[in-house]
Design a protein around this nucleic acid. Structure first.
Lengths: 225, 225
DNA sequence: GCAAATATAATAGTATTACTATCATTTTGA
DNA sequence: TCAAAATGATAGTAATACTATTATATTTGC
């Protein structure tokens, strides 16, 4: 596997861990294997016990890094959006047209990394899949306000903010950039899931990028319409 | 409270219960109090033990109606979409314009019932709130294919199907009615939640119906654009 | 009105989950 | 190299998500 960008350190709010997992070998092992395990089992069936067994460490050691499996999920998703912001910056750096930049931003959310790509030792391909199925569970619960104070959604907000500024460039009078973008990003993830499990709730096409095209169109029509 | 439409019986797939809860007093009590309790505690903190204590029945009795709390949630959400389809039919019955029918359909998803309205003894106001925060948990998990076979999503699919036919009337060439509608329905629920808990992810306005208007616009632009 | 069928209550029990606590051992870094 | 910190090993707890059994109501069909 390619361990790209070895000097990169993705910022995650310090409310999302007890000990920075990237500060130790065990921490990195926890991250790597939790991504694997959540991808395979889904978040509900994933437990620290199983993770501990897989990595040969006791549960208690994992709890020193993350106070709960919910905190770990928040960490992973926040890391994902931090990584996505890096990709975004690189992707649109030298593009002058805000329209093209917006299109690239939307395409980015739906594009997955190479299966073998490791960033900070994280299999980003699997983390993308986790984000599709599990990310909303970080906020759709009664502890959302607490998680919010702990900074769980800062990276996502920042990503949305950055793209919303592109919309402002295209049409400074457009009033709903955040609303449009979260509709697109969350909708895009959902359509991927529906395409695999609930096809009657979507309109799956043969082309691999039909979802991207749909949402790019939607964005243009809403912003300019 | 008004117990409206006493002769109405909302159809829910028989894979979503062990004993039809509306066939007995205990069953109805389970439904009523589970709606109350899930609204208050959220799905994660809701348990059959707590429900049993609240209604003065042992856990085991609840398990005879629903094999798991997940099945109960599927039942409630399915019931909700069954009820929404009834509302939809009534709401658009005599409207000839498909454009107006579509607008009413979108508005319906975002409109909540009167706080005191009981349908089949269910506090539909609270069930609406549950749908906003919990409905995606019925499918975003590893058991989705099983739940799907049990008919968990039939009522939702049927609702989406019915509205997508209206889109077909407006523009028979439009290729993505289901995709557009699930984007709108799920997005609409999310924006309500963001407005309350994560305002940076939406664009809250003072008017009570800004979400409805946003999505009605989005629909028109996408369908005709 | 009564027996049979069915539903419910009462109670107990199990494996697992989501943690916390304690103490010994290993690793580390100044 | 010595102290501090991290990790491992082990134990324990309250709660969760169920299943099982038997006794007691309640309903129903005749």
């Amino acid at each position: 596997m390619d361990n790209l960008l070895p000097n990169l350190k993705i910022k995650v709010s310090d409310g999302l861990y007890q000990i920075d997992p990237f500060s130790s070998k065990l921490g990195k092992t926890i991250i790597f294997h939790s991504v694997e395990m959540i991808t395979e089992l889904g978040f509900e069936k994933f437990t620290f016990k199983k993770l501990g067994d897989a990595i040969g460490s006791p549960e208690a050691s994992i709890y020193r890094y993350f106070k709960s499996k919910n905190q770990l999920l928040c960490y992973l998703i926040s890391w994902y959006w931090g990584w996505m912001e890096c990709r975004l910056i690189l992707e649109i750096a030298n593009i002058s047209s805000p329209i093209v930049r917006l299109e690239k931003s939307i395409a980015l959310v739906l594009s997955n990394a190479n299966e073998n790509l490791l960033i900070e030792g994280v299999e980003v391909y699997k983390l993308h899949q986790i984000t599709i199925s599990e990310s909303i569970k970080t906020y759709l619960n009664k502890d959302v306000d607490t998680s919010n104070k702990e900074g769980a959604f800062l990276n996502y907000k920042q990503f949305v903010e950055r793209v919303s500024k592109i919309i402002n460039e295209i049409n400074p009078k457009y009033k709903y950039p955040q609303m449009l973008l979260t509709t697109i990003f969350e909708g895009a993830h959902l359509q991927v899931f529906f395409g695999e499990h609930l096809p009657r709730l979507t309109n799956k096409q043969n082309t691999p990028d039909y979802i991207t095209k749909f949402y790019i169109n939607l964005a243009h029509q809403s912003i300019n319409g």
